[in-house]
Design a protein around this nucleic acid. Structure first.
Length: 455
RNA sequence: UCCUCAGUAGCUCAGCGGUAGAGCGGGUGGCUGUUAACCACUAGGUCGUUGGUUCGAACCCAACCUGAGGAGCCA
């Protein structure tokens, strides 16, 4: 008999009859003549309750010895439960596939996320991480769906790159040389020059947008920043769309539409997991997603945002002044206290932004935008790219970058240059937003942070 | 890199200068449908590490290690 998943059983409108289910024991309650065994197979949040009479086939050898975490195969009939769940299985035979040692670390009681991180190989067996990683999978699927439905082409930009200083943080060196040779003869390295793990696929993405019009990337990126916060990881996944024949307005519209689409998709396809997360992790989660799905986002220029912050009479630790970057506390004020909804801030001063962003006509600002969401802050950062050859050359010089290093990027402006724009969305930050989980280490299977690369 | 907080049983924590504790989890036994089941018994600890203060340190002090929160940087 083929295997039926717990999800298939529990979602049935009428009894599927005799089936075989396989999974891991979450809890077991024995009495003299029978046992209740709850198993979970990850197909959904809920467990299936199995009623095993002491007289059934395989009982003696397996059931009394089963500990939490053991794997079992059970054949039986799905019947209406006398208890609080709709369905349960009346077992006909039980087989223990593999028992669990006495020191199995997961209990029925709650564990701290810090402890669960130390057993990242077992934490997907908990309700919380099962829910989070089912949602991670669903959101990845929905992202592809969002772009593919609109004709975007998925591009795989390189993970190893030799283009230095992309302006997005410290890079990890990739090498097969020993330390000494690395210092003295870097030209003997594997690629003939220093190479690194990518911090962004944007520049390569632009080359494809200037050929296929609308593209997106979705892959891992690496930052060697020594950041110790709940919102930063050394390895994380990023989605970077890039659109030719587009300006900043189109770019902001796409970012907003995408966040809305993903909120709606989560509500529609992750209902049971969201219910759990809403109850145990973030009581305002579902309400927030409904709100994001329905309501239009706010937009405000950097200049107006600065003015608004100055007029707010709110005491900030860092000062607000035109020309300075908005601090975390300023961004939080805008999205959490003032607007109380996602906000896109656009047209930042050119001096605090990278070389590739398009200079506005005021000659003071660039066509950049950050999308801020309550609880997390910046979730999207994007811009219209500088498509004018002379201005780009000027910017390279201004940022102390050489045209030789970026000749291929400059070429895009020499051969049929077009206005184009794009953004980067941190996948883990999005997951924090849609799951309510407050630490980035708990939305990525095996987190890498400074000093920590276990598993 | 800077600032703050925390490390006591497998887990969650109490104890805060005078014999190391509880609940859960584990083991054994019991129990006519349980739902974080229940009842009884039981095993389990170099109190993060090193040094110092003291008659005496889990407790006070210092350094280090680990974890967490925040800042900066960003996604």
């Amino acid at each position: 008999m083929s295997r039926t998943t717990v999800a298939q059983v529990l979602r049935a409108s009428e009894s599927p009859g005799m089936v075989t289910v396989k999974g891991w024991v979450r809890t077991k309650r024995d009495s003299k003549a029978f046992s209740f065994i709850e198993i979970n197979d990850g197909s959904c949040l809920s467990n299936l309750q199995i009623v095993a009479d002491a007289t059934i086939e395989g009982y003696e050898e397996s059931v009394p010895h089963l500990r939490t975490g053991a794997s079992v195969s059970v054949e039986g009939e799905i019947v209406e439960s006398q208890g609080k769940q709709q369905w349960e299985m009346q077992a006909k035979s039980v087989t223990m596939l593999g028992n669990s040692d006495e020191d199995y670390p997961l209990q029925k009681k709650g564990h701290s996320p810090e402890f669960l991180r130390s057993i990242a190989h077992l934490r997907p067996r908990t309700n919380l991480f099962g829910a989070v990683f089912r949602m991670r999978s669903r959101m990845a699927y929905a992202i592809h769906q969002f772009f593919q439905e609109q004709g975007f082409v998925y591009v795989h930009t390189p993970i190893i790159t030799a283009s230095d200083c992309e302006g997005a943080g410290e890079m990890f060196r990739v090498t097969n040389l020993d330390g000494k040779t690395l210092d003295t003869k870097p030209e003997e390295d594997f690629f003939g020059k220093p190479s690194y793990l990518t911090v962004s696929g944007q520049l390569e993405g632009e080359t494809f947008a200037c050929a296929l019009s609308n593209i997106y990337t979705f892959g891992p990126t690496f930052r060697a920043e020594n950041s110790h916060t709940s919102r930063h990881a050394s390895e994380f996944w990023m989605i970077e769309p890039e659109m030719a024949f587009c300006d900043l307005d189109d770019d902001m519209a796409l970012a907003e539409a995408m966040i809305k689409y993903l909120a709606a998709d989560a509500l529609e396809h992750c209902a049971e997991d969201l219910e759990f997360l809403n109850k145990f992790v973030d009581k305002g989660l579902k309400e927030r997603l409904e709100f994001v799905k329905k309501r239009d986002f706010e937009r405000i220029s950097y200049t107006d945002a600065v003015e608004l912050l100055l007029k707010s009479n709110k005491k900030f630790e860092y000062k607000v002044e035109y020309g300075l970057n908005l601090q975390s506390e300023h961004e939080r004020y805008l999205t959490e206290e003032h607007f109380k909804c996602p906000v896109t801030v656009y047209n930042y001063p050119k001096d605090i932004k990278p070389f590739y962003m398009r200079r506005n006509d005021d000659n003071k600002t660039v066509a950049a935008m950050d999308l801020l969401v309550p609880g997390i802050g910046e979730i999207v950062g994007g811009s219209q790219r500088e498509e004018r050859l002379d201005v780009l050359r000027e910017n390279l010089k201004h940022h102390d970058l050489t045209e030789e290093d970026y000749y291929w990027y400059v070429d895009l402006r020499r051969y049929g240059s077009v206005p184009h724009a794009g953004f980067g969305l941190g996948f883990e930050r999005l997951l924090m937003f849609v799951t309510g989980v407050s630490n980035i280490r708990d939305v990525i299977p095996f987190p890498r942070t400074p000093g920590s690369a276990e598993f």
